[in-house]
């Protein structure tokens, strides 16, 4: 029995030491990533006045560099393509944990997809998983039940498929990340778009409780940290979804700002400014970003 225990303990210790070699792989993986925004966030390097959160609409339609130029406030875009509101909440929490609180958070709204179970909007595991060397990220993954609690003790528990990719990540040329974190769309889509009048009503029954909860938590976090939260509704190549907007206003719990694009502006009915039905091309994004800057400037002058 003694020998058995002795061998078990020595084996466990040996394994515990040997597996620490995995650290070198965990440490290399973030360096290979194209999108380094989350790592910058964890390192406390995003100390800006305006922060943009959202999915691809936020990433491509709101140009943080332009906001910076037009408002005089520093700005950075932390929108992730295909991300859902749970992920936006995580980004905001991370921002507040490691960086100074911004004056403004612009939360880009995905219209009728914001609260429902939409396959195209997810918790962006792929953005988080390469960074498991950071304890903060590992804690988050354990909470999300993606990593096992064993990962607290074993680096192998933090290992995932991203650590097995031994080449640098793909460089995005269609909408590269600029130095302000925005991802304006630079390459045109050849598909012909038709402007449509959507008539279907927003169905509240498809909403997910977790999404609503995350949305409300974003509002709470902003209030707690004295941040002005602005909900941004981007233009689409169809009419404004007013039935969703009615529902949305019920979930807006405080005096948050709501910014809706200028629906009377005819350029938002011109295909030249769109990449597809829900995403603006870079020229459209510039016009839309100016609208947001004007909104912030008005806000600022009102508060002075």
């Amino acid at each position: 029995m003694k020998l058995f225990f002795k061998h078990i303990i020595i084996f466990a210790l040996a394994f515990f030491i040997v597996e620490k070699g995995v650290w070198f792989i965990l440490n290399e993986t973030p360096k290979k990533q194209y999108d380094k925004r989350l790592e910058l966030l964890i390192k406390g390097k995003i100390n800006k006045d305006i922060i943009v959160l959202g999915s691809s609409r936020g990433a491509g339609n709101i140009l943080a560099g332009q906001l910076e130029k037009e408002t005089g406030l520093t700005a950075y875009n932390l929108s992730y393509q295909g991300s859902n509101v749970d992920f936006h909440k995580f980004i905001l929490e991370t921002l507040l944990k490691f960086n100074k609180a911004p004056q403004y958070v612009l939360l880009s709204i995905d219209n009728s997809s914001q609260f429902i179970k939409d396959e195209s909007l997810n918790y962006r595991e792929d953005a988080v998983l390469p960074l498991t060397k950071y304890n903060y990220i590992n804690n988050e993954l354990v909470n999300e039940k993606i990593n096992s609690p064993l990962s607290y003790a074993f680096f192998l528990g933090r290992y995932n498929k991203f650590h097995s990719l031994f080449r640098d990540a793909f460089v995005n040329t269609r909408n590269p990340i600029d130095s302000f974190g925005s991802m304006g769309i630079l390459k045109k889509n050849d598909v012909k778009l038709n402007y449509v009048e959507k008539t279907e009503k927003y169905n509240q029954n498809f909403e997910k409780a977790s999404r609503i909860k995350a949305f409300k938590n974003i509002q709470k976090l902003c209030k707690l940290n004295n941040i002005k939260l602005v909900f941004v509704f981007s233009p689409s190549f169809y009419n404004f979804e007013s039935s969703f907007y009615t529902r949305f206003k019920k979930l807006d719990e405080s005096e948050n700002g709501i910014f809706v694009y200028d629906s009377t502006n005819n350029i938002y009915r011109n295909q030249e400014y769109f990449y597809d039905k829900t995403h603006l091309f870079i020229n459209g994004a510039k016009i839309f970003s100016t609208e947001i800057s004007n909104f912030i400037n008005t806000e600022l002058s009102f508060n002075r």
């Binding site: 084996f11 040996a14 394994f15 040997v18 597996e19 993606i146 096992s148 064993l150 074993f154 192998l156 528990g157 290992y159 097995s164």
Partner: peptide, 18 residues
């Protein structure tokens, strides 16, 4: 022997299904 067992244990960690 132990190297082999450690290798198998490592596979358990690395290839644990999502």
């Amino acid at each position: 022997k132990w190297g082999f067992y450690m290798f198998i244990i490592s596979l358990l960690f690395i290839f644990r299904a999502e």
